[in-house]
């Protein structure tokens, strides 16, 4: 935990913003991965019924992308266990990609906010295997998980000296707001917009090629059937 005499609220009430900070770029990935791994283990031990609901997902990989943070999280469903880690560039493509603001993702996983409503309002975007995503969502929603509490308690038995984490925490607490704003600026909006435009145009062209191709096949079929008719 955070035995910081100067900031007692951090002890009692875990702020998800703190976690947001912990996942920021300036941190080494190794301790984050240990934290995530431990959290996943805790959830799987405390909620065996969830694991039963996740069974059809064995082998599936989810990529959770908080759009306002630099790190993405990879969730892998194993047989009777789940693995959770920071995404790195050597990992293969995931089955499902979920994108949204970090706080929205947290609230959804906690069962505080309805995921469908987030999707309707476009705050959440999803791609890939929707059946797998629904299974995961429904499984997590089937029990009362307090993600914040699970994360907080995950800090306890970490082998790394607590002081290291504490240092990180303090640093982050101080620089959090600055980091957050610089991060969102780092999303380089103009560039993203330009790419969007190009991608849209591309997709439009792809669509019309598919359409033309389909029409051509249909016409060919009709011609063939006509020719057949004439030769009968």
């Amino acid at each position: 935990m955070f035995p910081n005499p100067e900031k007692p609220p951090a002890n009692e009430k875990f702020s998800p913003l703190l976690l947001a900070g912990i996942i920021t770029r300036s941190l080494p990935v190794a301790p984050l991965n240990r934290l995530l791994r431990h959290m996943a283990r805790k959830i799987q031990n405390n909620h065996p019924a969830i694991m039963a609901r996740l069974r059809p997902l064995t082998g599936r990989q989810f990529l959770i992308c908080p759009t306002d943070l630099p790190h993405d999280i990879r969730l892998i469903i194993g047989e009777g266990h789940v693995d959770c880690m920071i995404e790195d560039e050597f990992m293969g493509p995931a089955d499902v990609v979920i994108r949204g603001p970090f706080m929205s993702l947290m609230d959804m996983m906690d069962g505080r906010v309805d995921g469908d409503a987030l999707f309707f309002s476009r705050r959440l975007s999803v791609e890939g295997d929707m059946e797998a995503l629904l299974t995961l969502r429904n499984a997590l929603d089937s029990e009362d998980i307090d993600l914040r509490a699970e994360i907080l308690s995950s800090f306890g038995p970490l082998r790394r000296p607590a002081t290291a984490l504490l240092k990180i925490g303090q640093h982050l607490f101080q620089s959090l707001s600055r980091d957050m704003s610089s991060l969102s600026q780092a999303m380089t909006k103009p560039l993203a917009d330009r790419c969007d435009g190009l991608e849209q145009e591309n997709q439009g062209l792809r669509d019309s090629v598919v359409r033309l191709d389909r029409m051509l096949t249909k016409t060919q079929n009709r011609l063939q059937s006509l020719t057949r008719k004439k030769t009968i």
Binding site: R122, M130, D193
Partner: peptide, 9 residues
Amino acid sequence: TYIQQGQNL
């Protein structure tokens, strides 16, 4: 299948 085409869905 959801297809994100930039800002469009």
